[in-house]
């Protein structure tokens, strides 16, 4: 299996059936090449390596996106991915809250807001 095909499989494992093709279809022109790079290199190569499982990879990814800030769309996507690979909504919120020590309240509160609206959209109650 080539790297792009492996990436497509791994991407769909994380985001759901057909997700890789939906990503590529949503991009235009040179943007499609960037999408293909993401699927081919990131999912076909890095996500397919041993050493960390998909749950651990989502914990690391969410922590990095929260730290970087201004990645709301990607954060919402990876929160959904994290639910797909076995993290609960409560655990995802804990991952974000843990980051407050290292990145401060502004970016952490923004990330909690993204998570809360993502869970609302999915009908997951976070007030329990």
């Amino acid at each position: 299996m080539d790297r792009l095909e492996r990436g497509r499989e791994r991407y769909n494992e994380v985001y759901g059936d057909g997700a890789a093709d939906r990503l590529l279809a949503s991009l235009r022109g040179v943007g499609k090449e960037l999408g293909r790079y993401g699927i081919e290199f990131n999912y076909g190569d890095i996500y397919s390596r041993p050493g960390l499982d998909l749950r651990e990879r989502q914990i690391a990814t969410i922590s990095s996106l929260v730290t970087l800030g201004n990645c709301e769309r990607q954060l919402a996507g990876h929160i959904k991915a994290a639910l797909n690979v076995g993290l609960s909504a409560r655990q995802i919120l804990e991952v974000i809250v843990h980051c407050v020590q290292y990145i401060g309240f502004p970016r952490t509160l923004n990330a909690v807001a993204v998570a809360t609206s993502t869970f609302d959209e999915l009908g997951i109650d976070v007030d329990e």
Partner: peptide
């Protein structure tokens, strides 16, 4: 924060290291 029960310390180290790298 590190003592909160919802995540084990191994996960908390993973989060911390990822945040510091990023």
């Amino acid at each position: 924060v590190w003592e909160r029960a919802e995540l084990p310390k191994r996960d908390r180290s993973l989060i911390t290291v990822a945040a510091l790298i990023a």
